[in-house]
Amino acid sequence: PPLQNNQPVEFNHAINYVNKIKNRFQGQPDIYKSFLEILHTYQKEQRNAKEAAGNYTPALTEQEVYTQVARLFKNQEDLLSEFGQFLPDA
C-alpha cells in the first residue's frame, strides 16, 4: 500500500538524483554548478512569491526551469526526463 506520508520517498529520490548528476558531470563541474544555480534561483523566486502573498510573480516559472535544465542536460535524456518528475507543473 502507498505510504500516507511519502516525504522520505521524495527525499531519497532527490538524493539519488543529485548523486546521479554529480557522477554524470564529474568532469564538467560547471554544468553541475549551473544546475544548482537554477534550482536555487527557482527556490528564491518561489519564496519571494510566497512572502508577497500573490503580489509577486516568480521570474522563473516551472516551464523556464525545465527549459534551462534541458539546455544544460542536452544529450542526457534520462536525466532530463527524471528531472521532469520533480517539477510541480511540467
Binding site: 511519502n6 516525504q7 527525499f11 532527490a14 538524483y17 543529485v18 527556490q43 518528475q85 520533480f86
Partner: peptide
C-alpha cells in the same frame, strides 16, 4: 556512501520540496 556538500544538500532540499509540491497539486 554519499559525499554531499551543503550546496548538494540544499539541491536535495529544493528537489524534494518540488516533488512534494507536485504531489500536492496532483492529488
Amino acid at each position: 556512501s554519499y559525499d554531499f556538500t551543503p550546496l548538494d544538500s540544499s539541491a536535495v532540499y529544493v528537489l524534494s520540496s518540488m516533488a512534494r509540491q507536485r504531489r500536492t497539486s496532483l492529488s
